[in-house]
């Protein structure tokens, strides 16, 4: 049996609505992944604890409010602190191109901006499948 890929979709920060995150969560489910969704306003600590308990392979962060430069790296750092640097972090939301290089540098392995098709996200996950499955 093929090992299932598990993905946590989480919303850090103070955004009040989560249509985008829910859309991604549902699309990834339809692509055959097991997706855990935890709702809005999650702290980096609670995102990481959820990721650990659920033993996910990926954490997808969604944020509209503009605090991505602080919150995305905070999740990466907290994962590292917990010894879970093998979990792959990606992000999405309204993120200016100028911030993408910075986020990459901070360990956010992919950044998807509005208008990206879901197949790009799936390609990214599949490109990392071998790596996460053998961790």
């Amino acid at each position: 049996m093929e090992r299932k890929i598990r993905i946590l979709i989480a919303k850090p920060g103070l955004d009040g609505h989560d249509r985008g995150a829910k859309y991604i969560a549902r699309a990834l489910k339809d692509a055959g992944y097991e997706v855990i969704y935890t709702g809005i306003r999650q702290s980096p600590e609670s995102i990481v604890r959820t990721a650990l308990q659920e033993d996910v392979d990926f954490v997808g962060l969604s944020l509209l409010s503009g605090a991505h430069n602080e919150l995305f790296p905070a999740v990466v750092d907290e994962l590292q602190r917990q010894g879970a640097q093998d979990v792959v972090v990606f992000g999405g939301g309204v993120i200016p191109d100028s911030d993408i290089a910075y986020l990459r540098d901070k360990g956010v392995e992919a950044v998807f901006t509005p208008g990206t098709s879901i197949s790009a996200v799936i390609d990214f996950i599949e490109a990392n499948r071998e790596r996460v499955v053998s961790r």
């Binding site: 055959g32 604890r49 959820t50």
Partner: peptide, 25 residues
């Protein structure tokens, strides 16, 4: 598809940081 959307934690996240609680979907 074999996929699943596991959303039950959503309403229990107030316990996410409590070391005495473990939630697994």
């Amino acid at each position: 598809t074999g996929g699943a959307l596991l959303g039950d934690r959503l309403r229990m996240q107030s316990h996410a940081l409590d070391p005495g609680v473990y939630i697994r979907s």
